[in-house]
């Protein structure tokens, strides 16, 4: 079994940290879905979260912009540090967190508005309406969508193809100038060509942003990420409920070529369990 080598060999010296977690856990009601995650996400790199279905990758990702707040009964324990602050501190305004830490979702979800208004929405919300046209154009250019839509800015975003819609969602996210972009399986609803374009785009974006991507596609993680975290599910001691655990976090080529944990090795070589 050959393992695809990572395209980007990260520097040997550890880069500065963008986000860090310490003993992070997420409860849904009294069920501990994700348990005791401690890791440091490096700045201006792409960090992939991989693992089997139900291992809590998406739940973990949603801790970073407090999207779990929207789920009734979800509760977060431990720390998530961004810069000098704990994102779950009482004084933190989740609305401001989400402006700094944007998110792209699994299914392209543009608003039923024009292409222009989709990108302008976040800018208007944050009163960044000075040079609105330029900002919209810039975001669309950086999302590699400008050439596709420059003649149709007033057309409905829903008329775009799935891949274009997803790039529009990326444009919408980066328009408000976040630090960090979270991507929750952004290519799972796209065909291979559209997927390739999104992966190319991620390489462009990592110069300006820190990117965290959840993917169930190991080839994608190997191709597109600099660091990778492998999570797995563990059956709870007292019952049949599963909880997500972090097994290994390393530079992607390390993780794929010299996994330290047998569970990682089994997973990436296709032997689940």
């Amino acid at each position: 079994m050959t393992v695809p080598a990572a395209l980007h060999v990260p520097p040997t010296e550890a880069p500065p940290t963008a986000l860090a977690t310490e003993g992070l856990g997420v409860y849904y009601g009294d069920w501990l879905a994700v348990d005791d995650i401690t890791l440091q996400v490096p700045r201006h790199h792409i960090t992939a979260f991989i693992g089997p279905s139900g291992c809590g990758k998406s739940t973990l990702l949603r801790c970073f912009n407090r999207m779990n707040d929207l789920i009734a009964g979800a509760r977060v324990v431990g720390r998530v540090t961004y810069g000098d602050v704990d994102l779950y501190d009482d004084r933190i305004d989740p609305v401001q967190v989400r402006r700094r830490i944007g998110m792209v979702f699994q299914r392209p979800n543009p608003f039923p508005k024009s292409v222009y208004d989709n990108v302008a929405y976040g800018l208007r919300v944050h009163a960044m309406t000075e040079d609105l046209d330029d900002r919209v154009e810039d975001a669309l250019r950086r999302a590699a969508l400008w050439d596709d839509v420059k003649g149709a800015l007033k057309k409905s975003a829903l008329a775009l193809s799935g891949g274009q819609q997803q790039r529009l969602c990326i444009a919408r996210t980066i328009a408000v100038e976040p630090d960090i972009v979270l991507m929750d399986e952004p290519c799972s609803a796209l065909d291979p060509i559209a997927t390739g374009r999104i992966e190319d785009l991620m390489q462009e974006l990592r110069r300006d942003y820190t990117i965290l991507i959840v993917t169930h596609n190991m080839q994608q993680a190997a191709r597109a990420s600099d660091y990778a975290a492998f999570l797995t599910t563990e059956v709870d001691g007292d019952g049949d409920r599963r909880r997500g655990k972090l097994v290994e976090f390393a530079a992607t080529n390390e993780l794929f070529t010299h996994p330290q944990d047998p569970r990682t090795e089994n997973y990436i070589t296709g032997r689940f369990g």
């Binding site: 609305v95 989400r98 402006r99 979702f105 929405y121 976040g122």
Partner: peptide
């Protein structure tokens, strides 16, 4: 997911 998109953009 559209409501989530708005919230994720930092909308109140």
């Amino acid at each position: 997911d559209q409501k989530a998109a708005a919230v994720a953009l930092g909308a109140t």
